[in-house]
Amino acid sequence: MPLSELPLWFALPAALLLILSGLLTLIGCLGLLRLQDFYARIHAPTLGTTLGAGGVLLASMLVSSGLSGRWVIHEVVIGLFLVMTAPVTTLLLMRAARFRERAHLVRPPERQETKRSAEEDTP
């Protein structure tokens, strides 16, 4: 069965879910670009890994079930795996960032700016 002949009760929710998760993932990556601080940026991609991925996985279930005429739900495996692993990566990154800041390997941006302005004031 071609994609355009999918029954409406499969196609309509799938289309809505796809549009929603596309927008959410895009906003998440926009946040990666727009926010000023690493600690603010670490929150942005979570949008894509929670509802963004969830929407696409649900839509994929709907579309493949509609196309093949039986229940295709093996996307649940990817969903469970993402739910289990995405927070672990974020946690490790958070710990790494705090460790590096404490070890003075990277200077947080506020401190850099104050230093620069202090240097400008002295001469």
């Binding site: 929150h43 979570t46 929670t50 946690l91």
Partner: peptide, 15 residues
């Protein structure tokens, strides 16, 4: 609790 807090956008378990 760490998984719940980190999976929710806007909050991250920091230690």
């Amino acid at each position: 609790l760490a998984m719940i807090v980190t999976a929710t956008p806007g909050t991250v378990w920091a230690g």
